[in-house]
Design a protein around this nucleic acid. Structure first.
Length: 502
RNA sequence: GCCCCCAUCGUCUAGCCAGGUCUAGGACACGGGCCUUUCAAGCCCGCGACACGGGUUCAAAUCCCGUUGGGGGCACCA
């Protein structure tokens, strides 16, 4: 039997990076095993639905290269009001892939469970349920439905009146299941709640829907966060009641923030969209996430893997059982490695939109601007960890700068007057250059430093301040050349004035 | 509160399943140095862990039990 796994997000917002890590494990496993990776939309909670999130989820998956073999088709997506539906339409033989389009299946199974004596109707009001829970909490007990409707005669609640359908969990015994990473997991039935399967609005809860869909879609492996462990017995019970074969379970740990708590907004970026917008490369993020909680082992000390290598070496059973902490530092390092490995042309194409978003470069980018940008790329390539870093590093190329203060500019060992003199000499030398290319600039300035009997750092630091307005910049000579003779001389002159005024 | 899961450097991990080759290896971060016009990048060096306590064994990071610590779950959410 071919391996079939799925990612089943609910459209409630941007995909969380911790979930994406789990998706990567699913995808890697499917690719490794030559199986199918299926996308299913679990839109059964109409109150939490966020418009646009389906697009965001699919766009995020595409961006990361997580292609799905089966998923919503064109018409389904259009019915759901998804923009650019044709872009994401995949389809498949087990549709529909929106749970909201499969409601009749859940209802049928729920009724079947009643007939089999494994479920019952319940018309307790939400208010009563809340009262019961409050009482239980006050007594320090586990909060559970008190099963008031469980022993009602079969026809006590009409199918036509508002009600829910609950699972009739055995009062004794244990429910056990096998997990790929943790072995045999066992739960006391007495501690399992009579879970609602079908809500009063006719929509299923997760527990019913996921079982029905995984069964009919012939999912073979359920790889998901370990926050689902405790509720798995409820679903096992449904499989048993229906006489269905449960899939193989693999509960992978969650991803926490640097403080060990659940990864959240205050730790930094958490949604895939944010990582993309901050200038992380999809391949780098993929590489990093794949290695978060998993390693190839066998003494392998490699850190940078191509997608193919990852697929080749991936072994689901080697996933770490302990939760991992998301290290922004290591991601930054890895992203830097990927940026440095890019070709200059590739990096240029990725950087242009960044400059444009920052308002430094017009959109579309004029050819002459592009020519200048192409020259900037090699200067910044090994200095940025995220694409967005380029903005702070290169803004002085695009906008006028305020001349720095005299205090900032004056190098160690010189005073304001001497500094101004140095700048005057620099200006004269640069003005006389036959060509304003990097090599000539470097040659001329080094000669000048020698002539003045000063240190490189004194003179070059001064020029850097004067021409870039920063203490830190890309390499000086290339920077001046790109800046151009006219602007370089003007900025030097402006700085000189500041020094003389002091 | 009850139930469940987990436990090697600050972090991600290798080693654990098939105990000795582990004075525990690598990577990120951190500290120092080299290179150097700044910052990076690169190279070199350093700091740094088997949570604790009992067993089992000739021998335990590796097997067992307990403690502690961390995480998760207990909805007409997924």
């Amino acid at each position: 039997m071919t391996v079939r796994v799925r990612f089943a997000p609910s459209p409630t917002g941007d995909p969380h990076i911790g979930n994406i890590r789990t998706v990567i494990f699913n995808w890697l496993f499917a690719r490794k095993m030559g199986g199918q990776f299926i996308l299913r939309i679990e839109d059964t909670d109409r109150t939490r639905f966020k418009p646009g999130s389906i697009e965001t989820i699919m766009e995020g998956l595409r961006w990361l290269g997580l292609d799905w073999d089966e998923g919503p088709g064109l018409e389904e997506l259009q019915r759901a009001g998804v923009k650019d539906a044709e872009k994401y339409a995949v389809g498949g033989p087990y549709g529909p892939y929106f749970q909201s389009e499969r409601l009749h299946l859940y209802r049928e199974v729920a009724e079947e469970l009643i007939e089999r004596g494994w479920a019952y109707r319940c018309n307790c009001s939400p208010e009563r349920l809340e009262r019961v829970r409050a009482m239980q909490r006050a007594r320090g007990q586990r909060t559970m439905y008190d099963r008031r409707c469980r022993s009602l005669p079969p026809d006590a609640i009409s199918p036509d009146e508002p009600h829910v359908i609950r699972l009739k969990v055995p009062l004794t015994g244990r429910t056990v299941f096998h997990d790929m990473l943790r072995g045999e997991l066992s739960f006391e039935n007495a501690s399992i709640d009579d879970q609602i399967l079908l809500k009063s609005d006719g929509f299923p809860t997760y527990h019913l829907a996921v079982v029905v869909d995984d069964h009919y879609m012939q999912i073979t492996h359920v790889i998901r966060g370990d926050d689902w462990i405790a509720s798995t017995p409820k679903r096992i019970l449904i499989y048993q009641a229906m006489g269905w074969e449960p899939p193989t379970y693999c509960h992978v740990p969650l991803v926490n923030g640097p403080d060990g708590k659940k990864l959240s907004k205050r730790h930094g970026a958490i949604s895939i969209t944010e990582f993309r917008d901050q200038g992380y490369l999809p391949d780098a993020l993929f590489n990093f996430l794949a290695l978060l909680g998993w390693a190839p082992g066998q003494g392998d000390e490699q850190e940078i893997f191509t997608r193919e290598e990852l697929i080749d070496r991936f072994d689901l059973s080697r996933v770490n059982r302990a939760p991992a902490i998301f290290s922004y530092d290591k991601l930054d390092w890895m992203n830097g490695v990927y940026i440095r490995n890019l070709s200059q042309d590739d990096l240029l194409e990725r950087l242009i939109p960044v400059w444009q978003r920052a308002g430094l470069v017009p959109d579309p980018c004029p050819e002459e601007t592009r020519a200048m940008l192409r020259r900037i790329v090699p200067l910044v390539q090994e200095r940025i960890k995220r694409l967005n870093d380029v903005v702070a590093l290169t803004d002085f190329f695009f906008v006028d700068i305020e001349p720095p203060s005299a205090e900032e500019m004056i190098p160690k060992g010189l005073d304001a007057e001497q500094s101004a003199e140095v700048l005057a000499r620099v200006r004269a030398v640069l003005a006389d250059l036959p060509d304003f290319d990097e090599e000539r600039i470097e040659q001329a300035l080094r000669a000048l430093v020698a002539e003045l009997g000063l240190k490189n750092r004194q003179v070059f630091g001064l020029i850097r301040w004067a021409t870039t307005g920063k203490k830190v910049s890309p390499p000086l000579f290339g920077t001046l050349s790109i800046l151009g003779r006219e602007r370089t001389l003007a900025r030097l002159e402006a700085a000189e004035k500041v020094l003389r005024a002091g």
